[in-house]
């Protein structure tokens, strides 16, 4: 197959900026517009742009699936810790007496987990769709 050189060059320049933009939207999810789902979709777009144009994976797919499995165990641990500090499930770990900057840690971590899970889900769905029918 012939891959056009203009598209390959431009996509190699754009890939790190798209990735950084997606992580920026995830990390500022609780101050401004954004959040986990939106940033995850942007990260998946950056991966698929490179894969669709060049034909090779930019990061390896099996390592991403391993990260997904570890995140699945990490999520209930984070959610259930709050029973020991406050007495309620499914809420923030820290009490109302702490400052805003310390209590933000919980929201940022949860946004990161959700964003990465969404990105990996979308990427695996598309890789199957593109490769179906090729021997």
């Amino acid at each position: 197959m012939i891959f056009s050189k203009i598209l390959i060059t431009i996509s190699r320049i754009i890939l790190p900026f798209l990735l950084m933009f997606g992580i920026y939207i995830i990390l500022n999810g609780d101050i401004s517009v954004g959040g986990g789902f939106q940033g995850g979709v942007i990260i998946a777009t950056s991966y698929l742009l490179y894969y669709f144009i060049k034909g090779q994976h930019p990061f390896s797919l099996s390592k991403m699936l391993k990260i997904d499995k570890y995140l699945f165990i990490f999520l209930p641990v984070m959610v259930l810790i709050s029973y020991f500090t406050r007495g309620y499930f499914f809420t923030n770990w820290f009490d109302l007496t702490y400052a805003y900057e310390i209590r933000r840690l919980f929201l940022v971590l949860l946004n990161l987990v959700i964003g990465l899970k969404v990105a990996i889900g979308f990427v695996s769905l598309f890789v199957v769709f593109i490769e179906e029918g090729n021997s």
């Binding site: 609780d30 401004s32 517009v33 809420t91 923030n92 209590r103 933000r104 929201l107």
Partner: peptide, 13 residues
Amino acid sequence: TSSKNLVTAIYLD
């Protein structure tokens, strides 16, 4: 919840 975005406060707390 200590978050200035109400949508984030609702779906994360």
